[in-house]
Design a protein around this nucleic acid. Structure first.
Length: 565
RNA sequence: GCCCCUAUAGCUCAGGGGAUAGAGCGUUGCCCUCCGAAGGCGAAAGCGCAGGUUCGAAUCCUGCUAGGGGCACCA
């Protein structure tokens, strides 16, 4: 046992993950040796960077957490674990503090080693395999083709796309999908609105208004050979529907593309009706005994699976209710081999979750596993701190294109992805209109630009990465920076697990801060007249390592990493 | 009435049960005789209220208060 352990820990990479694993091994060794009584051991222990630098480089609370179940006092266990930790390569010091925290200080050499490893890994640094083999379908935005993408949809575009990139970084095979509602009453209203506009008539009672309606109506007229307005009412409306939806669809796709978001699949709701998939889905649920008829309608008994009330699938007039399309669509996704279908919905659709989960269960799937629904809160508009109601008439609707025009793709994506989807987000129009740069994205981008500038200066002064002496990365600022960089793989893995892209953004801000402080304290290029020394060459590795993490992280967020600003 | 989300600094927001709660912007005092000051260092300023669980709670649980959203044979 001693031998196997020493093999395991003899070449530790000093990462929190590696330390955690080593600690688990130490516990199991202590159990074999009889120091710990029999009992279940934790499969992982928490290792984190203490806020207070006096508490070492990494700290674990394992003694506090687990001593009790083995009938030990925390400090007793901590001391025993510390003893073994001290024998590990790269561990310079182990302290036990407070009630039983184990604080580990690692040698500058062991910490600094990361700079070189990271540069050698390049873009592969941070990639993980926890989701390897998983085939994921991520559906987001899915805004109706009755108008441009508004601010809310823009948030999901930014968050969904970043989430896809994060999941991919952890080995998942991700398909980005957009469900295109080109069927149903809203589309009919859209068509009637276009027709009215073409005729110069008033917008219908429940119709859509706005410059884009007039523009699309005009475009439909211009691009169609026939005199649409002379057709019978129904034919005219159908013509405007078909052409108008197509134009709207193109426009939506283009604005998303300009935003850096491209979907692998644009799924048309209409197709499940035309293909008979809806009927097949209903048949399947009937066969499973989950359907019933009442008041002339066909219902899905979702209450069997926890919904508050049953749901109509086919209305008494024979038309399909909205959920009918969803039944077929979900089955379609599953038949395309997706183990897990993730839906991102706005908070205004949260009431839809129970019936979706019930549907999943009715098909014999596992809610929460095969079907996962992420609810994101709304984006609110404010001007000078005062809430602004989005109103088409008042012209206060802000679209994806408006936002990009005002602040650019980078600032827009960053601002939208920076907060947890559980929080509603306030976007201040007065700030956007001023086009000010008071956005944290510039802080991060500037740090990246700085790494490139430093690299360029180094190159022109003959500083090259020809040698590497990690023990020279001994300044407190380099310790901080190295520790930050070490955390990147864990941040990505955690962001993937939690479906929380904002964690990447927050992390990058921390990296940028650590880098700026390092830059202020540690020069990569020698002072004028001084010689290039090993320390300069070694620092160039760290500079490059930071550059890689910043570029990679910004890439995850769909934000550019400029060479200069 | 029921369901979901939220409540942390003046503002917008982070905080995976741990030690002295963070960032950006704003206020304010310093730092360009050398790699870009879009930067760094410092100051002031905060966990809605009340219980509970725990060695330890911003974090978990319950209740309350406040704000946002939702409760169709609409999509």
């Amino acid at each position: 046992m001693l031998d196997t352990l020493s093999v395991h820990v003899s070449r530790p990479k000093m990462t929190p993950e590696a330390l955690s694993l080593a600690l688990v091994n130490i516990l199991s060794r202590l159990q074999v040796e009889g120091f710990l009584s029999a009992g279940e051991l934790p499969s992982e222990v928490v290792v984190e960077r203490p806020k207070n630098r006096d508490h070492g480089d990494w700290a674990t609370n394992l003694a506090l957490q687990f001593a009790g179940q083995f009938g030990l006092k925390p400090r007793e266990l901590a001391e025993k674990v510390a003893e073994v930790l001290l024998t590990m390569d790269g561990v310079a010091k182990v302290d036990i503090a407070g009630p039983g925290f184990i604080n580990v200080t690692i040698s500058a050499g062991a910490a600094g080693e990361l700079a070189k490893t990271l540069v050698e890994l390049g873009n592969a640094y941070g990639q993980g395999e926890v989701l390897k083999g998983q085939k994921l379908n991520l559906e987001f935005v899915s805004a109706n083709p009755t108008g441009p993408i508004h601010l809310g949809g823009t948030r999901w575009a930014a968050v969904g796309d970043s989430l896809a990139r994060i999941l991919q970084s952890q080995g998942a095979e991700v398909t980005r999908e957009y469900y295109f509602n080109d069927h149903g009453a809203q589309i009919d209203r859209f068509a009637r609105s276009l027709l009215a506009s073409a005729r110069g008539a008033e917008t219908p009672e429940d119709g859509y208004a706005g410059a884009y309606i007039d523009q699309i109506a005009k475009q439909v007229m211009d691009e169609t050979a026939v005199e649409l307005l002379e057709l019978p009412e129904e034919e005219a409306q159908e013509a405007f529907r078909a052409a108008g939806v197509e134009l709207m669809f193109q426009e939506i796709r283009q604005s998303l593309h300009d935003f850096g978001v491209d979907f692998d699949v644009y799924f048309h709701e209409n197709s499940v009706y035309e293909s008979g998939a809806v009927d097949r889905a209903i048949e399947r649920l009937k066969a499973a005994g989950h359907m019933f008829e009442q008041d002339g309608a066909l219902w899905l008994r979702t209450t069997t699976f926890g919904d508050d009330r049953d749901r109509v699938v086919l209305k008494s007039d024979g038309e399909a209710a909205y959920i009918a399309g969803d039944l077929a669509y979900y089955l379609d996704k599953r038949s395309r081999g997706f183990d897990r279908c993730i839906y991102m919905l706005g908070a205004d659709h949260h009431g839809y979750v129970p019936r979706m989960m019930a549907m999943c269960a009715a098909f014999g799937d596992v809610p929460g596993v095969n079907l996962e629904i992420l609810i994101g809160q709304m984006v609110n508009l404010v001007r000078d701190g005062e809430p602004v109601r989005m109103s088409k008439r008042a012209g206060t609707v802000v679209t994806l294109e408006d936002l990009v025009e005002l602040v650019g793709v980078d600032a827009a994506r960053y601002a939208l992805v920076r907060s947890s989807i559980n929080s509603s987000l306030d976007v201040d129009l007065s700030v956007l209109e001023k086009k000010t740069n008071d956005n944290p994205v510039f802080y991060v981008q500037y740090a990246h630009a700085r790494t490139r500038q430093v690299a360029a200066n180094a190159a022109s002064l003959g500083v090259e990465r020809t040698e590497f002496a990690p023990e020279l990365l001994s300044h407190a600022a380099e310790g901080e920076l190295l520790a930050k960089l070490t955390q990147y793989p864990g941040v990505l893995a955690h962001a993937a697990e939690e479906r929380a892209p904002h964690r990447v953004a927050r992390y990058l801000e921390e990296v940028a801060g650590s880098y700026h402080r390092w830059y202020d304290n540690c020069r990569v290029t020698p002072l004028a007249g001084a010689d290039v020394e090993t320390v300069h060459r070694t620092r160039l590795w760290l500079n490059e390592a930071t550059s890689i993490v910043l570029r990679n992280g910004l890439g995850i967020l769909g934000v550019s990493a400029p060479e200069r600003m």
